[in-house]
């Protein structure tokens, strides 16, 4: 038997926020500044990242996943600055990341895929089989674990993606459009999982679906044109919108009210 807790689990936290950005600017491509002067502090819990298309959500998530380096400003993840040119290994072990569109090896089975990702994330070798089985069960793919990735449906591939993101029990979990391709029943199950994960990790979920945020997130971050528009609970967001704003639910009306005046809402759509 090996102990189920390690020194790292019981060590005191030496930072106030899992994610702390000050004046953060991140480039998408050569010219466009997709995140443009963002100040944001996020702690434990499930945070819904809402915003219109092209608001810079994906760029923000990618920079939080340490895939993109900030152009300006300061970004601290789990108390460690990622702006310099330092060794990110220890930090990356604690990150789980599901990209919006992720490639995978079609010939791998679900188990092999999640195992490979666990290996890449430096999960201790002895823990990998158990961690993989647990992650696969949590997303409800246990019966498909030994099927090849190319035989899975779109929703199942996405769930396999969620499984690889949570396989290392991340402190910082970044999910970019995780509900795309999930059917309604799976979405409900995913919201439960999200609430569960939000209890002991900082989960950032980027989404277009306001109702996902209302149901599963403790906190809403509204983001437009690379800047923070609103941060607060779903209730406060709902209270911001009156009946004069477009939308079918209080949350949607609050979303429209807060985004009024930004470019995207005045567009053709």
């Amino acid at each position: 038997m090996h102990p189920t807790t390690s020194a790292a689990d019981t060590a005191p936290k030496t930072y106030a926020w899992e994610i702390q950005a000050t004046g953060l600017k991140v480039r998408a491509g050569r010219k466009k500044m997709a995140v443009d002067g963002l100040d944001l502090s996020l702690g434990m819990g499930a945070h819904g990242l809402l915003g219109p298309n092209g608001a810079g959500k994906t760029t923000l998530i990618r920079s939080l996943a340490t895939v993109l380096r900030p152009a300006e400003g300061e970004l601290e993840l789990c108390g460690r600055s990622v702006t310099g040119l330092g060794d990110l290994r220890a930090l990356r072990r604690r990150i789980g990341y599901l990209p919006q569109e992720f490639g995978y090896y079609k010939r791998f089975t679900v188990r092999e895929f999640v195992e490979y990702m666990a290996w890449l994330k430096e999960v201790p070798k002895a823990d990998i089989p158990a961690a993989v089985q647990r992650a696969v069960e949590r997303v409800g793919l246990a019966d498909r674990a030994d099927h090849r990735m190319k035989t899975l449906s779109g929703g199942m591939v996405r769930r396999a993606g969620i499984a690889q993101a949570i396989v290392n029990d991340p402190v910082l979990l970044l999910l970019d459009e995780p509900t795309a391709g999930l059917d309604p029943a799976q979405r409900l199950r995913f919201r439960e999982l999200l609430q569960e994960l939000g209890r002991d990790a900082c989960v950032v979920v980027s989404t277009h679906l306001v109702e996902d945020v209302a149901a599963a997130c403790s906190d809403v971050v509204l983001f437009a044109e690379g800047r923070l528009v609103f941060q607060g609970t779903p209730d406060v967001l709902a209270a911001a919108g009156g009946s004069e704003y477009p939308g079918d639910s209080p949350l949607e009306r609050g979303y429209s009210a807060l985004l009024q005046g930004t470019e995207q809402l005045r567009g053709t759509w």
Binding site: V67, R89, P99, Y104, M117, K121, E122
Partner: peptide, 15 residues
């Protein structure tokens, strides 16, 4: 050339 590149790039072993 690597389809799983985006996933690999954010992991501890990348680099």
């Amino acid at each position: 050339l690597d389809p799983a590149h985006e996933l690999t790039a954010s992991t501890a072993r990348a680099g």
